[in-house]
Computed example of a mutant assay.
Amino acid sequence: MGDLNGKTALVTGSSRGIGRAIAQRLARDGALVAVHYGSNDTAAKETLETIRAAGGQAFTIGAELGGSGDAEALFAAFDTELAAYGAEPGLDILVNNAATRFRGRMAEVTEEEFDRTIAINIKAPFFLIQHGLRRMRDGGRIINISSAVTRTAYPRQIAYSVAKGGLDTLTLTLAKDLGERGITVNTLAPGWVETHVTAARTATPEERAALAAYSVFNRVGQPADIADVAAFLASDDSRWITGQRIDVTGGSTL
């Protein structure tokens, strides 16, 4: 993997799960990582501690997402914390991982649930990228975390699927727009991954086996499986890849 020494990264929703694993991996590769969280400051501090214990550099940023002005407020906090850390201003890697989901088929989703899903999963990344680009150095990396549900029908999470589909389109369009600056924009689309979100689905051996059966490798994905691919996309090794949706489902959609 490419050396990320001297790079600054922001990973949204990195207090737990996939986001935590990505933050840890980028820090291990040498990046200074801004660990963003919405409300769980305890979990964010745990992420920070694991990074520092491994010799990495990081700081935390607490900011809600999805409301008016949230992206601007997050980056104002980012600028402040970066300066307090003594690092050069600017951004090299932006990972849009923060997400929310409401279960429900078409007839069950409320307007409030739909609006919240769209706000967190597509509005927030859109404006985070807008503000992030004002700070991003040429040759930067934007990595959007989508989902397998944009290519596989999953009616029980229709609002989430629609929002993540929008994120895939945002990736494609931005990649063409930012090519002149050498900035790559790519999407990672995980399937079932063992995190706090899927804990209820892996509570028994039978449930775990059912999820594992989705993958050709007959196991449930781990956060590190996604983080390792994110690290590649963040590195110089991925410089000729942009506008792509990369399936990281362990072959679940084959």
Rank of each mutant, 00 (worst) to 15 (best):
P223C: 06
A159L: 13
G243R: 02
V193P: 11
S238C: 09
E64V: 00
L167N: 05
T100I: 10
I226T: 09
I22L: 12
F75A: 00
A175T: 09
E206W: 05
G13C: 09
P223N: 06
A84T: 05
N5V: 04
I183V: 15
I61Y: 01
L133I: 13
I241W: 05
I143H: 07
G182H: 10
P89M: 03
K164F: 08
T42L: 13
G17P: 03
A43G: 01
S14H: 07
R101P: 00
W192Q: 01
A54V: 06
L82G: 00
D247T: 07
A77H: 06
L48R: 04
G38I: 00
D228I: 06
R135W: 07
T152F: 07
D79V: 03
A203L: 02
S39Y: 06
I51Q: 09
A21C: 13
A98I: 02
E108H: 08
N144R: 08
V35L: 03
A212L: 08
N186G: 04
A213W: 12
L74N: 04
A224W: 04
T204I: 02
T152H: 09
R151T: 15
D177R: 15
D228H: 14
L178R: 06
R135T: 05
A119S: 14
G104N: 10
A53G: 11
F217D: 01
I122W: 04
T47P: 10
L167D: 04
L188M: 10
E113I: 00
A159P: 12
G221K: 10
G86M: 12
G86D: 09
A175N: 06
R20A: 14
P223S: 03
D3R: 14
Q57N: 05
L10W: 03
E111A: 10
Y214K: 12
R156N: 13
A76N: 10
A27N: 06
E108R: 06
F75Y: 13
F75K: 00
N144V: 09
A43H: 02
S15G: 15
G55E: 12
T249N: 08
I61Q: 01
T249S: 15
T171D: 03
K7D: 03
L74H: 03
T253A: 11
G2I: 05
I158P: 04
I51K: 12
R239S: 14
D237G: 14
G243I: 01
A153Q: 12
I226M: 14
I158T: 13
R28C: 07
A21N: 13
F127G: 01
S15E: 11
A84Q: 15
S15Q: 04
R141T: 01
E180H: 14
D79C: 08
V109D: 05
S68C: 00
L174I: 06
A76H: 07
S68K: 11
S235Q: 09
A203Q: 08
I241C: 11
A209V: 01
G69P: 08
N186V: 03
E111L: 09
S147D: 15
